[in-house]
Write a protein that binds this DNA or RNA. Structure first.
Length: 186
DNA sequence: TCCGTATTGAACT
DNA sequence: AGTTCAATACGGA
């Protein structure tokens, strides 16, 4: 059975983000396309491009599909609010359910990221400790880079051990900016 | 199996 | 204060 995604835009003063939902929750959040030169959003990768709102053969499924769409609309409102809050430098209160596709290792890293509270930071090494694999520091970096839902899953709060910036899949400017909005000085 | 990585800490200039 | 380097776990091809 094929998995369907619903793709919805979020307009902010920082540009148009794109959210993608599975039937389980928010699966992906993409940064606004950077320049006109770049055809791809900074964060879009893996996972096919199929994003269809309707399921193929329907009849019986029609009402449950409507139900799902209403659910997704509610999730989207939560995503929108949370994103705009964080962009405005305010702690988001509600997140939509997340449906993050990845290996067990990656999911454990992303779980750890979510425990970093607003306005705080941790190092790649500390995340490695938290998930019980103190030596997997570089792999943690890899998992951060594979985070499908940046900003809401706060990979930008992970710095290198020397409190220097490290990297960011959406571009270091975004990382600096997000940290600044949370009042974090580097 | 081989290669790259959003690391790290030590040992060097 | 900057540079090099090896150790390192994981994921993708």
């Amino acid at each position: 059975m094929k998995i369907h995604f619903v793709e919805l835009p979020i307009s902010t003063c920082d540009g148009q983000f794109t959210a993608r939902y599975s039937e389980k929750g928010l699966a992906e959040l993409n940064f606004p396309p950077v320049g006109r030169a770049s055809p791809r959003a900074a964060n879009s990768r893996r996972r096919g491009n199929e994003s269809e709102i309707s399921s193929a053969n329907g009849l019986v499924k029609d009402s449950s599909r409507r139900l799902l769409q209403n659910t997704i609309r509610a999730w989207h409102r939560a995503t929108e609010t949370a994103l705009k809050n964080i962009l405005a430098g305010r702690k988001p209160k509600n997140l939509p359910p997340l449906d993050l596709a990845g290996t067990e290792f990656q999911k454990s890293v992303w779980r750890a990221l979510r425990k970093i509270s607003f306005g705080k930071t941790k190092s790649y090494g500390e995340i490695a400790e938290l998930i019980g694999k103190p030596k997997a520091v570089r792999a943690v970096g890899g998992a951060c880079g594979a985070n499908p839902v940046p900003v809401l899953v706060p990979c930008h709060r992970v710095l290198a051990a020397n409190k220097k910036l490290g990297g960011f899949s959406g571009g270091l400017d975004w990382k600096r900016s997000l940290l600044a909005r949370e009042g974090i000085k580097i």
